[in-house]
């Protein structure tokens, strides 16, 4: 199997279905590109991450640069020397990952719902979506567990925005 080095990294592999998350000691090694996807190696074992199995890649922190790769039952955290290289890898891989992300209209509705605007005609005006679709989105939000039986946004609904760029005021 051929592989080409991409970056010096530290990594840790967690089993994501264990009740208590097990966490190995961070291993120093390399991230490699291979014929079948990605490899992580500590110099002895080569851990293969098939791209077709990837469910998600998220940025955990900017400083130090750290990303999390999710494959069924496993979380792999990778920390690299250069943030831009890990971010580039993430953006390179994202198109190959098919996720079941809720659409933007549903997110927009939940954003208003979260600040107390729940009236369908008003939501229709604000979102420029017909009322019938608004009702469908509300039903879908309830079915997906984003709005509870009391009509309140749930923690799962709130989490919809946890990945949003939320920092107001940059350096500069």
């Amino acid at each position: 199997m051929k592989a080409r080095k991409y970056e010096n990294v530290e990594f840790v592999i967690n089993h994501s279905t264990d009740e208590m998350k097990l966490s190995l000691v961070w291993k120093k090694g390399g991230l490699y590109l291979s014929l079948s996807g990605l490899f992580l190696t500590d110099g002895n074992t080569w851990y293969e991450l098939p791209v077709k199995e990837l469910e998600n890649i998220t940025v955990v922190s900017d400083t130090p640069p750290k990303i999390r790769l999710k494959i069924p039952q496993l979380d792999i955290m990778i920390s690299g020397e250069r943030a831009e290289k890990l971010l580039a890898l993430r953006h390179f891989l994202l198109p190959y990952i098919s996720g079941d992300e809720p659409d933007s209209e549903l997110k927009a509705l939940l954003r208003f719902w979260g600040i107390g605007i729940k009236d369908a005609p008003i939501l229709s005006k604000l979102l420029k979506i017909d009322e019938e679709t608004i009702e469908k989105l509300i039903t879908e939000s309830k079915d997906r567990g984003y709005i509870d039986g009391n009509g309140e946004i749930t923690p799962a609904g709130n989490r919809m925005f946890s990945d949003e760029v939320n920092m107001v005021g940059g350096e500069g």
Binding site: R4, H15, F39, N44, E53
Partner: peptide, 16 residues
């Protein structure tokens, strides 16, 4: 290009 020995490879997805 590195030649990786097949015996040293653990396919994480399959094993999981």
């Amino acid at each position: 290009l590195w030649d990786v020995n097949e015996d040293d490879i653990v396919n994480l997805a399959d094993e999981a």
